[in-house]
Design a binder for these strands. Structure first.
Ligand SMILES: [Mn+2]
Ligand SMILES: [Mn+2]
Ligand SMILES: [Zn+2]
Ligand SMILES: [Zn+2]
Lengths: 138, 138
DNA sequence: GACCTTATCAGCATTCATTGCTGATAAGCA
DNA sequence: TGCTTATCAGCAATGAATGCTGATAAGGTC
């Protein structure tokens, strides 16, 4: 995602207000490679804004998704995960025990659906998910 | 998955009983490439067994998973999907609108995590999910 | 066929992540 | 300043999945 300044400018341009809550979430997502859940973002935000509500965090990440600033991943870990790193396309390795998600910033060439199997589908995205156990869960 | 006879034999060998309900589910999964949800399996089973409970279907697919006869996929379509085709490893193409899932029986060579990125993880599975819209949802 | 054990069923309750709703308050920004 | 939108609290509702219970049914073994 872009810088706090850029994202807030984008929000204003779209008629959204750059509230402290939203700026807080945006800040927490800057250079964040932990793929946080909404819950964990909320916990962190509470440190700075003791009255922020979980509902606002949900709303904000959805707003950011609509603006194309983040993606919301469902990697089968039980809850949504926020992906702010859209600049560098990559794949993921998820721990089936604790849900930890790390990036696999590797391109896999030739990763597309052969025409014979398309069957009328139009493909938007490809996602490669490796699953296993992280060091602490082994 | 194996034939009804083989699966029931496996169940008995493990001390599980080959009840009509279980056999019904197993039969419904034979050569089934629709990646059914538990709900849809249940609806279908109701045709043959009007008193079968959804709970029993849940239990049975988990039993079958423990026996290694099926896999339970979470492809982000909202509910579990039962994959009885373990003989032919393949990937999936899912419709983000209706949840339809079709097979992409293609191997993508070189699809593994580079050692540099493993970071202590031990990898069990790889899953490639293509997402898009099916013909009827376009 | 008898008996022990397990499965099923109905019928709820519960969990968990997420969304919805509401009315009052706060605050962004033109 | 004033219009409009966001936030908040707080609670309800959703939907998929699991848990629980006591009674009944029935599988498999001898
Ligand atoms: Mn990532
Ligand atoms: Mn499949
Ligand atoms: Zn882990
Ligand atoms: Zn569709």
């Amino acid at each position: 995602m872009q810088s706090v300044q850029e994202v807030t400018a984008t929000m204003r341009a779209k008629g959204l207000r750059a509230t402290p809550q939203r700026q807080c979430i945006i800040r927490l997502l800057q250079d964040n490679h932990s793929h946080p859940t909404v819950e964990s973002l909320y916990e962190e935000a509470l440190g700075e804004m003791p009255t922020i509500s979980q509902r606002t965090v949900y709303q904000t990440v959805h707003d950011l998704e609509s603006l194309g600033e983040v993606r919301l991943l469902d990697l089968g870990t039980g809850s949504l995960r926020v992906e702010p790193n859209l600049e560098n396309p990559h794949h993921h390795l998820a721990c089936i025990v604790c849900g930890r998600v790390v990036d696999i910033p590797v391109e896999f060439p030739g990763l597309r659906v052969p025409d014979d199997y398309l069957g009328g589908f139009s493909v938007d995205t490809v996602e490669v998910v490796f699953r296993g156990r992280c060091e602490t869960c082994t």
